[in-house]
């Protein structure tokens, strides 16, 4: 069981000609047009773009909260038709249930799969350790800082050992110090868990710092403008000329 999970814990995600149209005041509004993107197992991909470019919508389609779209989103060849334990998501707001302790919040996903008590306890404590929240198992969300709450949310998303971790501006609401720190943490967690990550962000530097490739989206309707690979070894130096050059290139693509 564990072995199988380990082996399958790297999934390829294929987004083929995906378009999405909402109806606003009875008029169709296209938010995504013909998105095509292949994400390799274990890859860290960031999606950047101005607000309204549909990057969060794309994430909602991948997680399965919205299943009405044209085209295909294939996870290991299977079309996504709803949420599943092989995908986890962290939203910009931590969305922890305020009436549950950190441990209970993280354990929710295991509970949903009918995991036994001991399996649950072990997985919860492993993930709490992974995100560096040991000692805060019994704390309630209101007792946590923004950064700690977001760590708990990351642990909740990882507890089912998903193949794909989706991050919807996960650090967007944090102060810059906590943000820089949690970027390092994200990097460590990604390397440790070898999970495929798709992160939506509006912070280009964050995208370059973390990702294997950066997808630049353009708004109205949301479409892919450029896909920029980042071939710099980790840990990356934000002050290095190649880092800055890449950042400038992406900012340039965004300004189109």
């Amino acid at each position: 069981m564990t072995l199988q999970l380990q082996q399958s814990s790297q999934a390829s995600l294929a987004i083929r000609g995906v378009s999405k149209t909402y109806r606003v005041d009875d008029r169709p509004l296209q938010v995504l047009r013909n998105i095509a993107l292949d994400i390799a197992p274990g890859e860290f991909v960031s999606v950047v773009g101005a607000s309204g470019c549909g990057k969060s919508t794309l994430l909602r389609l991948i997680i399965g909260l919205d299943t009405e779209y044209d085209g295909d989103i294939l996870l290991d060849g299977q079309r996504i038709a709803g949420p599943g334990p092989e995908r986890g998501i962290v939203f910009q707001e931590h969305r922890l249930f305020p009436w549950l302790t950190v441990a209970d919040n993280i354990g929710l996903g295991l509970e949903a799969r009918g995991a036994g008590q001991s399996e649950r306890e072990q997985a919860v404590s492993e993930n709490i350790a992974l995100v560096g929240l040991a000692g805060f198992e019994k704390a309630y969300p209101h007792q946590l800082s923004g950064g700690m709450a977001q760590r708990a949310a990351i642990a909740r998303a990882l507890v089912n050992r998903p193949e794909i971790l989706l991050l919807d501006e996960p650090l967007g609401a944090l102060d810059s110090l906590t943000r820089a720190y949690l970027q390092k943490e994200l990097l460590r967690i990604w390397q440790q868990e070898q999970v495929t990550v798709v992160m939506v962000t509006h912070d280009v530097e964050e995208a370059v710092y973390l990702s294997d490739k950066v997808v630049v989206m353009e708004p109205r309707p949301g479409r892919i403008g450029a896909i920029v690979p980042v071939d710099i070894d980790h840990p990356r130096d934000r002050a290095a000329p190649e880092f800055i050059a890449l950042k400038e290139r992406i900012l340039g693509a965004l300004a189109h």
Binding site: I63, G64, L65, P83, G84, P85, G88, I89, F91, E93, R95, F97, W99, L100, L108, G109, E111, A112, R113, R156
Partner: peptide
């Protein structure tokens, strides 16, 4: 609605939704 989305993403059962989300909420 944010919490209801979390319940959907985590695929909480009907009983869990009641006990873990709706009642305490």
């Amino acid at each position: 609605a944010h919490y209801l989305e979390v319940a959907r993403v985590l695929q909480l059962s009907w009983r869990q939704r009641i006990v873990r989300l709706l009642l305490p909420g």
